[in-house]
Design a protein around this nucleic acid. Structure first.
Lengths: 248, 248
DNA sequence: CAGTGGTCTAGACCACAAA
DNA sequence: TTGTGGTCTAGACCACTGG
């Protein structure tokens, strides 16, 4: 039986998680069946229940097990057919790839009317809509185009600079009395419009990744919409599900 | 000052998390600045350090804060421009939408040679490659097409039924001596080929979401590749980032 | 050195499920 | 009633950071 090495730099809760994960993958603990109780695991590996729980929490986060109060902790169905895509803001993503980010302001305009898709999302033009669009580049190469629509309150002066560099939710916070606290996003594929294709330097109709984001205030009023189109040859999402390492 | 209500059904660690999140969003704790230390928070809200830590863990998971050993716990830059897409296996996803899943086996074939893209991913044809493809439907409507390539070892009989219903990693485990433990996936947009478009009942060239998945054994040998094409009008990924609820 | 976060322990009470 | 997971406490030791 595997034992916990208390002198290792790998903390016990992590070692135990690796052990249990291994037993699950090797079939000793089978999908649908319960794991030993937290107390039993604690006795078996000479760890406190708190530590056992921390370990189980790690495995639960990874989707390997799930606990049911009063019943037990059960091994989940195997699910390598699962992917998790984290999309940070453009700047963070590109910089993490070691590339240089660039923004180019394409357009800033005041709209009296919202485009139809924005109305469908429940946004109301209040006193008007501020629209702007940017070209997103990585190492000078065009990667994406984004279009933003936000509720607008007059008053504060607008500097082009701001639109070029600041985050959307920041701009909304500054230029309206709204504080966005919730973000809903939808990712899909689409054909590039002639307009967007022109900036992306692709052909109209070429496939692009489309991300549509809606920002809501605490009382669920939509106050900002962002639509992103990414060149599919230069932008993709990746996911990596790996087992816990045994020893570090 | 907000206080912890110990008689509430909402556990203290959660209440505290909501309080801190609120203070961050209202600007009392600013991005880049440190939170009070865990001990201070414990004193202030009359909670044990363990409970404070559980609360901070929750906020860290949500990307609001990050801890640095020896230094402190810092408020992250605001990031509503962030989305997390979880793609479970097709069956789970569709069933969660309350729809009926269907599979139709399109093709099962033994290949002597791997297609070029699979070779590029490092897969070797060993003793041969088993290829199969399925049409994925939701409420009888075609939603996706998938193509699978797996290392093949003769021996066990293959039942068409299996390919129709079992998960890819399960099939690999049964029909080879390989145990996939790691999954890498890439999501992008593409134009549908004539072949796939035909099954999806769309036109060739229409945009589709493409998911490419590679399964690896513990020693990082690729043993299975899955390529999925989804109709962009019937399949999209969603993400919802919301604040913690104050009281439940 | 003092202060920070990271980990662990031993024990307690609760809500829930099943017999 | 017993056993399960969910939460909390009080106290301990460690590793890391910075003065």
């Amino acid at each position: 039986m595997d034992k916990i090495n208390k002198n290792s730099f790998t903390p016990p809760f992590y070692q135990l998680a690796a052990i249990i994960e291994k037993k699950i993958m090797e079939g000793e603990f089978k999908p649908g069946e319960p794991l030993p109780s937290e107390n039993d695991l604690g006795r078996e590996y000479e760890l406190s229940r708190t530590t056992v729980r921390k370990c189980l929490g790690l495995l639960a986060e990874r989707g390997m097990i799930s606990a049911q109060q009063g019943k037990g902790t059960f091994v989940s169905r195997p699910s390598l057919d699962r992917a998790i895509f984290v999309m940070d803001d453009f700047k963070t993503q590109i910089e993490n790839q070691g590339k240089e980010v660039g923004y180019r302001l394409i357009n800033v305009r005041f709209l009296k009317q919202l485009p139809e898709f924005a109305l469908k999302l429940g946004m109301t033009p209040d006193k008007g809509i501020l629209y702007y669009s940017r070209l997103l580049t990585a190492c000078e190469e065009p990667v994406g185009v984004e279009h933003k629509y936000m509720c607008y309150k007059k008053g504060k002066p607008t500097l082009e600079n701001e639109f070029q560099y600041k985050a959307f939710s920041e701009i909304i916070t500054i230029h309206t009395e709204f504080l966005p606290v919730r973000s809903q996003a939808m990712l899909t594929a689409e054909s590039a419009s002639e307009y967007d294709a022109n900036y992306l330097k692709i052909s109209a109709g070429d496939p692009v990744l489309k991300l549509q984001q809606v920002l809501y205030t605490r009382d669920d009023k939509p106050v900002g919409i962002g639509v992103f189109y990414y060149r599919s040859d230069r932008y993709s999402l990746v996911s990596d599900i790996q087992p816990l390492k045994g020893e570090r």
